[in-house]
Simulated scan of single mutants.
Amino acid sequence: MALIAKSLTVWLVILFCAVANGALRESVLIPHLGKAPGLLLSGVLLSALILVITFLALPWLGAHRPAQLMGFGAFWVALTLAFELSFGRFQGKTWATILEAYTFKDGNIWPVVLLVTAVAPYAAARLRGLQS
């Protein structure tokens, strides 16, 4: 149970950074760079943040087995999808509008961000030399 609570805590930090990244994207990146470059840079920035947060949190998480690490990634993706879909519906967006974010349209790389989220714990463990 402690691992789940720790994993949830790390995901909440990632969520906070993702919301801040979204605010940066909408208020600075897209107005100054345009939609496609703004979306692309935002996706790259969020992916990097996810990797850095995971790398820093990994010792605190205390998991080293590949199955645990991949489990964290899957858990984070599931939480992210639940949040994104629920928040979109709460805002009154149609399913078509919500699901458009899961395409590579106009520089959007959200599917890549989800993939990075899924593999971040395992990749961070590899970078720390905890996995061969």
Rank of each mutant, 00 (worst) to 15 (best):
L15C: 02
L29F: 14
A63Q: 11
V52H: 02
T54Y: 04
G43Q: 03
T94D: 11
F75I: 13
V119Y: 06
N21G: 12
G107A: 11
R65F: 01
T80D: 08
H64T: 15
R126Y: 15
G129A: 04
G38W: 04
L56T: 10
L56D: 08
A120Q: 10
Q68E: 15
G129V: 06
L41E: 01
S7I: 02
V116W: 01
T97P: 00
E26G: 01
A57T: 05
P31Y: 09
L51E: 13
G73Y: 07
W11E: 03
L39E: 12
V19K: 02
W76H: 14
L49C: 11
R65Q: 14
A125H: 07
I50C: 01
W95N: 06
N108L: 14
A36F: 03
A82E: 03
T54D: 03
W11I: 05
F72G: 02
R65M: 08
L130V: 09
N108G: 09
S86P: 00
I53Q: 06
V19E: 02
R128T: 09
W11K: 02
V119S: 03
M70D: 08
I30K: 04
R25E: 13
W95P: 00
I4V: 10
G62P: 00
W60M: 01
A125P: 00
L114S: 07
T80M: 00
Q91R: 14
S47E: 08
A5R: 09
A57S: 14
P121F: 08
G107T: 12
A20M: 15
A118M: 10
W110C: 04
A18S: 15
A5C: 00
A2W: 08
E100F: 09
G129C: 02
A5D: 06
L24E: 02
L33R: 04
L8N: 05
R25W: 05
V28N: 00
A74Q: 12
S27R: 13
L12H: 03
L49D: 13
T97W: 10
H32I: 15
Y122N: 06
W110A: 13
A36N: 05
W110P: 01
A48S: 10
A78D: 09
S27P: 00
S86V: 06
I53M: 04
H64L: 06
L114Q: 13
L114I: 09
A23R: 09
L56M: 11
T117C: 04
L130E: 15
I30T: 11
A101W: 11
I98T: 11
E84M: 05
L114F: 05
F55R: 10
L24R: 03
Y122D: 07
L12G: 01
D106Y: 07
G62A: 07
R126N: 07
T9H: 01
I4N: 00
L49M: 14
T80S: 05
W76V: 08
R126D: 04
A36L: 03
V10G: 00
R65A: 15
F83M: 05
L40F: 12
G38D: 06
V119I: 14
T94V: 03
A23I: 15
L130H: 09
D106H: 09
G71T: 15
G34D: 07
G38L: 08
V44D: 04
N108T: 14
H64R: 15
N21A: 15
P111Y: 13
A125R: 08
